[in-house]
Design a binder for these strands. Structure first.
Lengths: 346, 346
DNA sequence: TTGTAGGCGTTATCAA
DNA sequence: TTGATAACGCCTACAA
């Protein structure tokens, strides 16, 4: 039971391979009766065209785009990916994807294989390879970068203004009247965390509030447990009436820690997160946060990629902006001053 | 600036294409100096082997496996996919994936393209195509089905015992002393929902408690909002001291609804969900649920697929079992003296 | 409208 | 060890 090829079909149908190809792709006109006969034989033999050979012969793309993400899990990546894939699929393109787990080696490997396999384009989410190597590996393949800026690819970086987000989040708390605002940040090796922290600092500076390193704490990773732990530490170190966590998971973890210590949110402490994960609507209280336009960004990436593939001059991309999503976890401080045990101030 | 092929390298290096191929794949021994020369030219010309042509010539697989999921988003799918991909990547295989959005047409389309593109295997999560068509489309490609049972593919179905899960969840509530236990189920067109409901009913039956249709409510979908809405309806219809939601999102939604009506959980109403999403640990109170072994299942699927690809007789798969994860949302009903009262033993 | 021939980039076969 | 040469399965001239 060998594979049936276009030749088998041709022979069986009493025509030439070329003719079969024509009825297959509608490349040229074929006499109806011949065409019908061919179709019939195709069905009989259960013939399936070999897409590989097809691409090879045509020299064109393989109908696939390569996607490399840090992780396949996590609401953020999933949503972006989902939006991205929906756009792609509508154009008949498929996604060949792999995760790097933050390993440059994995990334390199995947990138190599994908380009060799003839992906028509590349979508890289927060790649960790150094600029130069990345550019080399990419070669001339149309590429969109997400959450990573490389000057040479300036036109193709889909980013979000994390600094602005951090600024707006902090400003929200300031506007509510908070003055001692803590910040729990994901580990600062991650660019987004640094940027959000910067925004936080800027907002404070603008308000004339001095940076207090006792109120800034760098967590071990970016999940809820670290948020909890960081908050525990925070509670021992300083006093604060509000808390900015650089992502929602940590914010939710912080909420847990505060509740465990019998603080109520937002009465005793206000919290704001970042990302607007669906989880924000399910905690008690619901979490104020910075909305992250995941779907839009995934869609944008896809469209930009399609433009590049079609040879059009792609739009110039400007950073997306996140905006405030105020829910229950943020409110004005209870009294005039911070209600949380004022170690330093008292 | 055309593509540089193996011929270009050969010419430039003063050897034959075959030799270049040899140094490339280590297929046979090549004199060190020749080999070195070839390597040098490869670097100079920036030659990249064409994986398509490679597969074509070798007649072997393309190094890819096709994956079709209902959705790319959602913690459940992401985690399974992530675990699956990690196993695969370790073997140098890549994933070409697409989502069907529950559309048979999309599924058909993707399946066709993937097999044509020469995927070596298929991983289908809860496909919606009818058995017969699915089998036909799959052909002889090694396949693993997740959360779908097809007799012909009995050995390759990775499933979970949803019925058992529903039973255990309900039994947990019964054991706590609850008698009026409501059930919010995802729409019953989804098999998993029907099965979990069955488990619920069985537990009640076993306890001699009659089915009360006022306490069973079918939500519009399976997200938290429907859980909230369903609970709202429930509160108007019947009285209950415990609630089994057939998934965590709905459970979390139910929790919100109850809290909005000033019921406290678990004092007034106990809640148990299903899936053990990370969200369960972040709600207040934390959610009791049935643990769903997502990673294990994803990993299992990958391993089974690898076995098939290697021609080994794959292990026979038995359904995974979910187990109870008791957290804060379930407790004995108010006024109950002894929390757990096993009828038989007392 | 149809068939023939040559090529896509690589590997396998078989002499040399 | 090497190098021709024939596949691999399909497509696109070009010719008929």
């Amino acid at each position: 039971m060998k594979k049936v090829t276009i030749h088998d079909v041709a022979k069986q149908a009493g025509v030439s391979p070329a003719t079969v190809s024509r009825v297959l792709n509608g490349t040229a006109k074929v006499k109806p009766d011949k065409a019908e006969q061919v179709q019939k034989v195709i069905a009989e033999l259960g013939y399936r065209p070999n897409a590989l050979a097809h691409s090879l012969a045509q020299g064109k793309g393989s109908g696939t785009v390569g996607v490399i993400v840090r992780h396949l899990y996590g609401e953020f990546f999933s949503l972006v990916l989902s939006a991205f894939e929906n756009e792609l699929r509508a154009k008949g393109l498929h996604m060949i994807c792999s995760s790097s787990n933050g390993s440059a080696q994995e990334e390199r490997q995947s990138l190599k294989i994908m380009t060799q396999r003839g992906v028509e384009a590349l979508f890289l989410m927060a790649p960790c390879l150094p600029d130069a190597e990345l550019l080399e590996l990419i070669g001339t393949t149309p590429t969109v970068l997400m959450n990573r800026y490389i000057p040479e690819l300036a036109r193709s970086c889909v980013t979000i203004d994390n600094r602005l987000g951090g600024y707006l989040a902090t400003k929200h708390l300031l506007d509510l009247g908070h003055e001692r605002i803590a910040c729990i940040t994901a580990y600062l090796t991650r660019q987004f965390a640094r940027q959000r922290l910067e925004g936080y600092l800027e907002a404070l500076r603008e308000k004339g509030i001095a940076r207090d390193d006792l109120l800034i704490i760098e967590a071990d990773d970016l999940y809820s447990e670290s948020g909890t732990q960081a908050t525990e530490r925070l509670l021992k170190l300083g006093s604060f009436s509000a808390l900015f966590a650089t992502n929602d998971l940590m914010a939710a973890g912080a909420l847990k820690a505060l509740q465990a210590h019998a603080y109520s949110v937002p009465e005793d402490v206000s919290i704001i997160g970042f990302d607007d994960l669906s989880l924000c609507q399910l905690t008690t209280p619901t979490l104020s946060t910075m909305h992250y336009p995941t779907e839009e960004m995934g869609k944008c990436a896809a469209q930009h990629l399609l433009q590049q593939m079609e040879g059009k001059a792609p739009d110039t991309l400007s950073p997306f902006k996140s905006y405030l999503k105020i829910r229950e976890s943020s409110a004005a401080p209870k009294g005039q001053t911070s209600p949380v045990k004022p170690l330093v101030e008292s």
